[in-house]
Write a protein that binds this DNA or RNA. Structure first.
Length: 449
RNA sequence: CGGAGCAUAGCUCAGCCUGGUAGAGCACUGGUUUUGGGUACCAGGGGUCGCAAGUUCGAAUCUUGCUGCUCCGACCA
């Protein structure tokens, strides 16, 4: 993509509404525009990141055996009356009336609807286990939205729902999602720690929150330092097999948020030098809630004896529009964002330092073509402006690598390649430049881990 | 929802106290500069001062109401 033809209205100064660093950087890097409190337009740069995050989630969900579908944003109130949540949910639920005076709502979540889809189509235990998920916009009319898309009213969420014959099978489904989540966050360059969670209004008795450690996190967390170095289940993990050992490895050590912390237990179980007290951002939550919805809503299957039994369910959420700022909170510096390659809007900034120089332009154009052919996602800064502004833009938007091309280097047949994260600069010959980048970028995509 | 604050150009802000023809920097347009970490200069365009009433000869400025946004608290993916 040529920057001169792209839409990237970066801001030199920080809009005053933005408080935390991810919100400031998302506005400055032209990822977002606020339309109202808690409502945001995703500008091209931000949308590219959102879609990359979505693609990783879909890949890992699919691998774990979940099947993607898409449910509507608006739902009929009657469905929610069946579960009793139409009245139980407070003003957080946005209620609307259609032209026929029917009560509708903008979905804050989809347990009821998925249950209705399940019950009208699945009748036999032979069709279980089943895990259906979708990635759809939700709305919760928060009293106080804040921190940009970290806590917005409209948000994009992946929610998966598992259906099983009994609790034992449902726990296996829970484990599949648990493992898929570990892999999902890892692929985005994050370390997310599962912590025992309250089950909240959704209900149930088995639940974990996945927390990303970040200085600017919204809640305090306590955990065993050893969790930070736990190995991630590999790409070829057998989702049909027993995943208990992976889950145990990740849950046997103490980890809790400030709402759930038992200080005495924390101090008893974790040696002093391994105690981590930090801030964290919740980026996902998994629940087992049994027959809470299947029973009142009549989602039953025939078991092996021909008896109608309510199915055991779990739900598994990941907030995509929260994950994007969470990644920024975990990865930035004073100059801007530092994207992990796997979610970067582009992998490389190709910077032409001298747009007035014919030789330099020709060389940049040629490199752009070569890089594109090599499958590297390039944002080519071909704008007619000073070098300082280009460097500042590249650092701000945080593409993982920069290829800096100017007459000075070209005299020696060289370009400079800068690693955004480490700041390391390397002069590389024109002939080797593409290979140099491929060697670094390809493994960092984390597509084969 | 309780408490606090803000609203003037695309962005950051000054002007308001003490009413008198609306400003700066950045951004934008045209030109000079060809600049390796937001280069310098010249010339321009752009705002019914959030909305509505009131006070006044006269309101960005004073008064009242409304709306929007932000922060702290309670709540939350």
């Amino acid at each position: 993509m040529r920057l001169s033809k792209y839409f990237l209205p970066v801001l030199k100064e920080t809009p005053k509404e933005a408080e935390i660093v991810s919100h400031r950087l998302m506005l400055r890097a032209a990822m977002l525009k606020q339309e109202a409190s808690g409502l945001y337009a995703w500008l091209p740069m931000g949308y590219r990141v959102l879609r990359k995050v979505q693609a990783i989630i879909e890949q890992e969900q699919d691998r774990a055996g979940a099947i993607e579908l898409l449910m509507p944003t608006l739902q009929p109130a009657d469905l929610w009356r069946e579960s009793g949540r139409y009245d139980a949910y407070g003003k957080e639920m946005l209620r609307v009336t259609d032209r026929h005076e029917r009560n509708m709502l903008y979905g804050p979540t989809n347990e009821e609807m998925i249950t209705s889809i399940f019950r009208s189509n699945v009748k036999s235990y032979k069709d279980l286990p089943l895990n259906l998920y979708h990635i759809q916009w939700k709305f919760r009319d928060e009293i106080r939205p804040r921190f940009g898309t970290m806590r917005s009213r409209e948000f994009l969420m992946k929610d998966a729902y598992s259906f099983d014959l009994d609790k034992e099978a449902s726990v296996k489904s829970y484990h599949r999602m648990f493992v898929a989540y570990l892999r999902t966050y890892y692929r985005m360059g994050l370390t997310a720690i599962p912590m025992q969670a309250e089950t909240g209004p959704i209900g149930g008795d088995l639940s974990h929150e996945f927390i990303v450690l970040a200085d600017t996190g919204e809640s305090g967390v306590f955990c065993d330092k050893a969790l930070l170095d736990q190995p991630i289940p590999p790409k070829d993990v057998d989702y049909d097999g027993d995943l208990t050992s992976y889950v145990n490895d990740w849950t046997k050590m103490y980890a809790a948020t400030e709402d759930m912390i038992d200080m005495d237990k924390f101090q008893a179980e974790v040696p002093e030098d391994r105690r981590v007290e930090a801030r964290g951002i919740e980026v996902g939550q998994v629940f087992y809630f049994g027959t809470k919805y299947s029973e009142p809503m009549g989602a039953t299957v025939a078991d092996a004896n021909g008896q109608e039994v309510p199915v055991h369910m779990g739900s598994y959420g990941i907030g995509l529009t929260r994950l994007v700022p969470a990644i920024i909170e975990a990865s930035h510096d004073d100059d801007g964002i530092i994207w992990p390659v796997s979610v970067a809007p582009f992998e490389l900034a190709l910077i032409n330092l001298k747009t007035g120089d014919e030789g330099c332009v020709a060389q940049c154009d040629a490199l752009y073509k070569q890089l594109d052919n090599a499958g590297i996602e390039v944002l080519y800064d071909d704008r007619d402006m000073g070098a300082g502004g280009k460097f500042a833009t590249a650092d701000l938007i945080g593409l993982p690598y920069q290829m800096i091309v100017g007459p000075r280097g070209l005299k020696n047949n060289e370009v400079e390649i800068k690693n955004r994260k480490t700041g390391e600069r390397t002069n590389v010959s024109l002939e080797q430049a593409v290979d140099f980048l491929l060697e670094r970028i390809v493994p960092e995509r984390r597509q084969d881990v």
